[in-house]
Design a protein around this nucleic acid. Structure first.
Lengths: 244, 244
DNA sequence: GTCCCTAGCTTGTTTGAACAAGTTCTGGGC
DNA sequence: GCCCAGAACTTGTTCAAACAAGCTAGGGAC
């Protein structure tokens, strides 16, 4: 059973997405909502904090909260798994390991993965296709303790994240991403089928387990025009949990 | 005076950034922190919620909170203003309007800015330099009601966001961003001084006022290698900033 | 009619308490 | 020595109350 505030948040979200609370309209005041749901004001504040974090509503002290938008921004967590995102968007995803080898960590990798220089790591080069078209080239380095689990995966595994969750109970909960544009190198161009020197969208990311242990470090290159990152930010309102 | 929880958050953040609380270390428990600062547990929870949203600490029910990282990711708000970010990072920013003209909104613009087709808009082409190097080409469309305020700005205005805040009290608080890579067109190549067809990082964004009124729509192209978007996502909360 | 100022409403901050749910560690039993 | 059951601890959820700070609409002065 979800907590009370989450269910109230779901209800409000549904009202916004369903158009009962149109964009620009004020939300009912906290007092009214509290009375309507028979909960304390703090619980309502937690519920609207969820919506604020999603960028659906904005708030200013003294004035009523306002509906900002109807499109719910996906949690950025989907960015962790190309496969999850693509499937949700109705695309067919396939993956293929091009190259896989064990080696030892260099200084940069060691720092990023929280290892010592020389610790074993597993390097994987993976090509992913969307509806048959080569779209993403992943160069991933897994921490040594993950290597056996990754090596056991089939070469055409669709979703590594899901597979590792199912086989090892691993959850990649927190991550850090660096996004920029780079020119396609020779290998990039050949595998993705683009011109050498042409634009690629690069995403470098570190993913850690829920406990904060770094698990993988990856350099992902997307063919230009194939993928766009969408970010909705509920800027000023970054503080979340109002009350305990 | 900042609220109490914000000051406690600042103190904890400083401890993490300063290395007193190294990555992987547990945070003191809420009870301990509450006693130490002589506040209620709820106040401590608000403080750590800030850090959680910044991606600095993670938490699991039942276990102590853990320091996840040392790099603080700025709130996405800074991304609204290239100038604000650059200045904060210690760079010298200059801007220059290349072209500016009024026209009427097409279908796509009207939809994005919440206008009717044919409503007046102001189109501005702006080149921005970082420490003297051309780095960003902005193609911005302002809603008609903003046009007078924008036209009144000097052609070499550094920070449009700040200027509009000061002259009109406008705050660009919420936005939506689409990030991808594109090949440089002829004009892009000439103004940014890169090869035609070379990689550019494109950011398309809609910015609305705090009240949810769309104010500007912009296509920003960054020279590859000059700027990187950093995104840190802590299970739902995301924060982003450009970095070099 | 216009302007200002205040009364009332709304969100923000904080307190203190209680229980629920999950984790960690300590002993005792084997 | 190993393993399992609790005890103790820690975070998560909720309540009720109070005051602070900011906004808005309406009424009074001009």
């Amino acid at each position: 059973m979800h907590p009370r505030y989450a269910r109230i948040a779901d209800e409000l979200r549904a009202a916004i997405l369903g158009g009962e609370l149109p964009v620009g309209a004020p939300l009912p005041s906290e007092t009214v909502l509290a009375a309507r749901h028979k909960v304390a004001r703090g619980t309502i504040r937690q519920a609207v904090a969820v919506l604020t974090a999603e960028g659906l509503v904005g708030s200013r002290q003294g004035a009523r909260r306002i509906v900002l938008g109807r499109e719910r921004s996906q949690n950025f967590a989907v960015l962790h798994s190309f496969a999850e995102w693509a499937r949700a968007a109705g695309h067919e995803v396939t993956g293929q390991v091009i190259e896989q080898s064990r080696r030892t960590a260099g200084a940069a990798e060691a720092a990023r993965l929280g290892l010592a220089v020389g610790d074993p790591v597993l390097q994987v080069l993976r090509l992913r296709r969307l509806d048959g078209v080569a779209v993403l080239l992943e160069r991933t380095v897994y921490a040594g303790w993950l290597a056996p689990a990754v090596e056991r995966l089939p070469a055409d595994c669709d979703s590594v994240t899901r597979a590792l969750f199912e086989s090892r109970g691993l959850v990649f909960a927190y991550g850090e991403h660096l996004i920029d544009a780079v020119a396609a190198g020779t290998e990039d161009a050949r595998l993705l089928g683009v011109r050498r020197g042409g634009p690629l969208l690069r995403q470098r990311r570190v993913t850690t387990t829920r406990e904060g242990r770094p698990a993988e470090w990856s350099d992902d290159r997307y063919r230009a025009g194939s993928v766009t990152f969408a970010i909705r930010n509920a800027a000023g309102a970054l503080a979340v949990h109002p009350q305990d």
